[in-house]
Computed example of a mutant assay.
Amino acid sequence: MSLAYTALRAQEIKENLDGVKARMDEVLQTQGGAASKARLVAVSKYKPASDILAAYETAGHRHFGENYVQELEEKSKELPSDIQWHFIGSLQSNKCKTVAAIPNLFVVETVDSAKKASTLDKACAAAARPEPLRIFLQVNTSGEESKSGMSPGESLEVARHVLSNCPHLKLAGLMTIGSPNPDLENGENPDFKALNQCRTTIQDTLQIEGLELSMGMSDDFQRALQQGSTNIRVGSTIFGSRPPFTKSS
């Protein structure tokens, strides 16, 4: 795996990152308190490790998102150990062991059932992680069959299960993928509104606080920030369009 990159490519990636951060700041500076802070996850799936290193070295970026377990595992071994990896793809039960063994895995954003949470919890125990692994519960707020995630109505019980039965996991937030063409009402994306409502229900019922909201991608991250997102996932705007990917992992 080559880590070499050209100065031109590094400049392009840095400028793209800076552009996204500037657009984030435009939204966030109008909001106060916790709402004024948000994390940018550079989605690097299908992209060479050299692109990630360029963002790391020239822009000081640390949070990167990967969709495929094999790709994440390979990149995590080649790249600096202080990179904070986000797993944002569909997590298969038979891949939990591999994911849990990645030492600098920051969060798994796609836990979509109590059963999956338990499987990942056992994998984290076997991997002897020094502290609980952060997870987000993926909620299918749009109801689209093509998308993974639990229904909003299931999120409370899954959250309760994690808190009660998964000591090697830390419930850190909720995640959703918004509809590509939402029917906006009063300027609000209903998918983002639904995730906010899930968070409120979970926090009020289980008497916890501080859950993050991971919502917003290249096309809708500014609206997501306006609606309280603390974690946005941006790929093509930073790294450019992606080639077809045929390797299964």
Rank of each mutant, 00 (worst) to 15 (best):
A4N: 08
Y5P: 02
T6D: 13
A7G: 06
R9N: 06
R9Q: 14
A10N: 08
E12H: 12
E12Q: 15
I13H: 07
D18A: 15
A22K: 05
D25V: 11
G33R: 07
S36H: 15
R39M: 12
R39S: 10
L40I: 05
V41K: 06
V43Y: 02
Y46S: 11
K47I: 01
A49G: 15
S50A: 15
Y68T: 04
E73P: 00
E78A: 15
D82S: 12
W85G: 09
F87K: 08
G89Q: 11
K95N: 00
C96E: 13
V99H: 01
A100I: 02
V108M: 09
E109T: 06
E109P: 09
D112M: 05
K115C: 02
K115A: 12
A117F: 08
P130S: 08
P130R: 02
E131Q: 14
R134D: 05
V139L: 09
S142Y: 12
E144I: 00
S148D: 07
M150T: 06
S151K: 15
L163N: 04
A172D: 14
G173Q: 02
T176C: 13
T176N: 06
N189S: 01
D191T: 09
D204G: 03
G210E: 05
L211S: 07
M215K: 05
D220H: 01
D220A: 11
D220R: 03
Q222C: 10
A224M: 06
L225H: 03
